[in-house]
């Protein structure tokens, strides 16, 4: 069977697991195309108007897979960490898709809910196995194989400090990563935001591409091990139960305390509730206790890059702390 996986949202976090899991059960995994104008256009047409950009783009990716696959895998992701939740839009994603897109192929909407404990992962994989008509033994073999790949993926992120696109072989030419520990450039930026925003070259208007071009070293929360994120979140006055927001805030606090970074770029989608809150919390924290520059970039359907570039270029100028009297600024940018 051909199983389609939309190249959006949790693709950037769980694709290695899903790919190996389905393939070891003898299925073909088909990915949708990288986000492009057509996908954006279809997504906006199909999706309800109030959703955030990444959800709209997800709709476009589902549309892109139609006609190419037998089934589309859209898990109902409720919780990926005990006692924490994911954004409600993920929870209702299969229902949103079913209600908005006509003539869909079969949708696999297996629920992933680890709220009551990590061991609930087995409920999820056995349910997946049942949907695919395979017995529990084969499911377990596939699960451990997939888990190994997933762990390797996470190792590459956190230890080798690579970014998902490069590991998942998305970029045409894989550049040597210019990340903190590896090749120290003179400026180090902490790049915060949901992985499905910052790693999607189209949504993020090539932010990572542009940083690399300017030889700016960056680190993202995907590159930070969980222990350090948790250490960062300890500073909060109250425990956060949004997994994604917690990851962002924890990373910010961890690096702010260690003074290892020159600036923070926070990428938020317009209309994302948690993003608006998280950005504000980090900015307030910086204003109170630190003096490093903070840039908030809001993304929506805009295709004109001028406004985005102006903010980014000006921010990089600030980071370099160029005295404007002297001539030590870059010619372009």
């Amino acid at each position: 069977m051909k199983i389609g996986i939309p190249r959006a949202l949790f693709y950037y976090q769980f694709y290695p697991f899903w790919k190996i899991f389905f393939e070891s059960l003898g299925h073909n995994v088909i990915l949708s195309s990288p986000t492009n104008k057509e996908i954006l256009k279809k997504g906006i047409e199909l999706c309800v108007d109030d959703a955030c950009l990444p959800i709209k783009i997800f709709h476009g990716h589902v549309a892109d897979l139609m006609g190419k696959v037998d089934t589309i895998y859209i898990p109902r992701i409720v919780s990926i960490e005990p006692k924490e939740y994911i954004c409600p839009k993920f929870l209702g994603l299969p229902d949103m898709i079913r209600n908005s897109i006509p003539d869909l192929p079969c949708i696999m909407d297996t629920e992933l809910n680890l709220y009551r404990g990590k061991s609930k992962i087995f409920d999820y994989v056995f349910k997946l196995g049942k949907d695919l008509n395979v017995n529990k033994n084969r499911v377990l073999v596939a699960y451990y194989k997939a888990l190994k790949t997933q762990k390797q993926f996470e190792y590459q992120l956190t230890r080798e400090l690579r970014i998902p696109q490069d590991i998942l072989n998305e970029t045409r030419q894989i550049q040597k990563d210019q990340v903190l520990e590896k090749k120290p450039s003179h400026i180090k930026v902490l790049l915060l935001g949901h992985n499905y925003n910052i790693y999607d070259d189209f949504i993020s208007m090539g932010l990572i591409r542009k940083l690399r071009k300017q030889n700016i070293a960056f680190i993202t929360s995907e590159m930070v091990v969980k222990k350090n994120i948790l250490e960062g979140t300890k500073k909060l006055s109250k425990d956060m139960f949004w997994t994604l927001g917690k990851k962002t805030i924890g990373t910010a606090h961890y690096f702010l305390d260690r003074k290892k970074i020159d600036g923070i770029i926070h990428v938020a989608s317009f209309g994302c509730g948690p993003d608006s809150l998280v950005g504000e919390l980090i900015e307030k924290k910086i204003k109170r206790d630190y003096t490093i520059p903070f840039l908030s970039l809001n993304l929506d359907e805009h295709a004109g890059e001028t406004g985005f570039n102006t903010r980014l270029e000006a921010f990089l100028d600030v980071l370099e702390g160029r005295g404007y009297i002297e001539d030590n600024f870059s010619t372009y940018g």
Binding site: F270, P293, N298, D300, R311, F315, V318, G321, R322, Y324
Partner: peptide, 21 residues
């Protein structure tokens, strides 16, 4: 179309903000 604030200390830009969307 833009409004901005630029914060300067010791003849160097240390912070700025622009209107969002």
């Amino acid at each position: 179309q833009d409004s901005k604030i630029i914060v300067i200390r010791n003849k160097t830009v240390v912070d700025f903000a622009m209107n969002t969307v």
